[in-house]
Design a protein around this nucleic acid. Structure first.
Length: 137
DNA sequence: GCCAACGTTGGC
DNA sequence: GCCAACGTTGGC
C-alpha cells in the first residue's frame, strides 16, 4: 500500500464537505506531476487530506476507492481523476508549521514542493505524522 | 496583498 | 529545443 498527500482549499472543498459526501471525485488536477501521482494510486492507498491557504494542516485521512480515469471536466482530455472516500479525521490536525519544524520531514513533498497538489508520502513519514496527530490506524 | 517558486506558453 | 514572459499557487 502506498501513501499520499492531497491538498484542498477549504473554501473550495473542505474536510467537512468530504465527510458529508463520504466519497468524492478528486478532480480538477491540471498538473502533470500531480496527475502522474494520481495515476500511480491504487485502490486501498491512503492519503492525508491537507487544507491549503486556510488552516494549513493535515485534517483527515481518505482512501482511494477508484483508480485513475478520465476527468471529464478537462476539455482537453489530458488529465484524469480518482475517487476517494473519507476514512477518519486527524484527532489533532498536524500543521504545516509542525511539519516544517521537524527535520524528519525535510524530504516530504509538501515541504520540498509546496505547490504540488498531489504528492507522495513515505511509509516512515506517514507513521510519524499519524503519531503526531494522535491517529491510530 | 505581496512575493517566491515553479509550470506553461510561445517566439525564435 | 531554448529561453523569456507570463500565469498560478500557496505561504506569510
Amino acid at each position: 500500500m502506498a501513501y499520499w498527500l492531497v491538498k484542498s482549499e477549504p473554501f473550495k472543498y473542505a474536510w467537512d464537505k468530504m465527510v458529508a459526501d463520504k466519497r468524492t471525485h478528486w478532480d480538477g488536477v491540471r498538473n502533470y506531476q500531480a496527475s502522474n501521482n494520481l495515476k500511480a494510486m491504487k485502490i486501498g492507498d491512503r492519503c492525508f487530506f491537507y487544507h491549503s491557504n486556510e488552516g494549513l494542516a493535515i485534517v483527515g485521512i481518505v482512501e482511494v476507492v477508484k483508480e485513475y480515469y478520465p476527468d471529464d471536466s478537462d476539455p482537453a482530455g489530458r488529465f484524469g481523476m480518482v475517487d476517494v472516500a473519507a476514512v477518519a479525521p486527524m484527532p489533532n490536525p498536524v500543521t504545516l508549521a509542525q511539519i516544517k519544524g521537524d527535520p524528519r520531514f525535510a524530504e516530504l513533498g509538501l515541504v520540498r514542493q509546496s505547490r504540488l497538489s498531489v504528492s507522495g508520502v513515505s511509509d516512515e513519514a506517514w507513521a510519524q505524522i499519524c503519531e503526531l496527530g494522535g491517529y491510530k490506524g
